[in-house]
Computed example of a mutant assay.
Amino acid sequence: MNQIRVLVVDDEPDFLKLIKRRLTKRNVHVDTVTNGEAALAFLREHPVDVVILDVRMPGLSGIDTLKEIRKRFRDTEVIMLTGHGSLQSGIEGISLGAYDYILKPFSIDNLLGRIRAANEHAKLRIARRGQQ
């Protein structure tokens, strides 16, 4: 089984270290960046399967970053992440093309399940497109 490649985008360095350590232990390849601009730059150079994207960040917001990812990297799934309990931002993210959203705090197993589901969804979409 190929390792799922994930980019986690969050402006909290301690959170990034924790999530990287926990997902790496579960056989997920994790890269991290601290803002939307860095995420877009990273994606131009390094394809990933799933982006975990914080909604609230300084500079380019998670929603604006999502819009750019949907335009430029259509085979990459995005899971929105918010620590502010905003159902509205999750709904907005889904309406703009995010695969899913998750509220902080969350269990690592819940996040891992969503990452795997998003990855499978992307694979199916790509396979269907290849059959057309």
Score class of each variant (00 low, 15 high):
residue 11 D to T: 09
residue 109 D to I: 15
residue 15 F to S: 11
residue 25 K to C: 06
residue 85 G to V: 07
residue 8 V to P: 00
residue 121 H to W: 12
residue 45 E to I: 03
residue 20 K to Q: 14
residue 45 E to W: 01
residue 43 L to H: 00
residue 126 I to E: 15
residue 127 A to N: 07
residue 86 S to Q: 13
residue 99 Y to A: 01
residue 70 R to D: 03
residue 93 G to C: 04
residue 42 F to W: 13
residue 48 V to G: 00
residue 22 R to W: 05
residue 40 L to Y: 01
residue 96 L to Q: 12
residue 63 I to A: 08
residue 62 G to R: 01
residue 47 P to H: 13
residue 13 P to L: 09
residue 89 S to N: 11
residue 90 G to W: 02
residue 118 A to G: 09
residue 12 E to V: 14
residue 77 E to P: 02
residue 106 F to G: 06
residue 99 Y to L: 03
residue 92 E to A: 11
residue 44 R to P: 04
residue 1 M to C: 10
residue 20 K to F: 03
residue 47 P to M: 14
residue 113 G to V: 08
residue 56 R to S: 13
residue 82 T to F: 08
residue 126 I to M: 13
residue 120 E to Y: 08
residue 80 M to P: 05
residue 121 H to K: 13
residue 91 I to D: 06
residue 117 A to S: 09
residue 18 L to G: 09
residue 7 L to R: 01
residue 74 R to K: 13
residue 17 K to E: 12
residue 44 R to K: 15
residue 37 E to D: 11
residue 107 S to D: 14
residue 110 N to Q: 15
residue 54 D to M: 08
residue 21 R to W: 10
residue 110 N to W: 09
residue 38 A to S: 10
residue 74 R to Q: 10
residue 16 L to N: 00
residue 101 Y to M: 06
residue 59 G to W: 11
residue 4 I to P: 01
residue 99 Y to M: 00
residue 119 N to K: 09
residue 79 I to S: 01
residue 53 L to W: 02
residue 64 D to E: 15
residue 14 D to K: 07
residue 38 A to I: 03
residue 11 D to P: 03
residue 106 F to K: 13
residue 61 S to R: 07
residue 96 L to N: 08
residue 20 K to G: 09
residue 90 G to N: 04
residue 9 V to C: 05
residue 6 V to L: 06
residue 22 R to C: 06
residue 62 G to L: 04
residue 49 D to I: 03
residue 83 G to A: 15
residue 98 A to L: 06
residue 67 K to G: 03
residue 77 E to G: 06
residue 12 E to A: 15
residue 10 D to W: 13
residue 45 E to A: 14
residue 101 Y to S: 04
residue 129 R to M: 13
residue 66 L to G: 02
residue 25 K to H: 09
residue 126 I to W: 11
residue 40 L to D: 05
residue 23 L to N: 00
residue 86 S to V: 04
residue 94 I to G: 02
residue 76 T to W: 09
residue 45 E to H: 08
residue 34 T to V: 14
residue 66 L to T: 01
residue 90 G to R: 05
residue 8 V to Y: 02
residue 31 D to S: 12
residue 31 D to K: 06
residue 18 L to W: 13
residue 117 A to D: 06
residue 84 H to A: 14
residue 31 D to L: 08
residue 7 L to C: 07
residue 71 K to Y: 05
residue 71 K to F: 06
residue 48 V to A: 05
residue 124 L to K: 11
residue 50 V to Q: 00
residue 6 V to S: 00
residue 94 I to E: 01
residue 132 Q to A: 12
residue 19 I to D: 02
residue 62 G to H: 04
residue 54 D to C: 15
residue 24 T to E: 15
residue 24 T to C: 05
residue 128 R to H: 01
residue 74 R to E: 04
residue 104 K to H: 14
residue 115 I to A: 07
residue 51 V to Q: 02
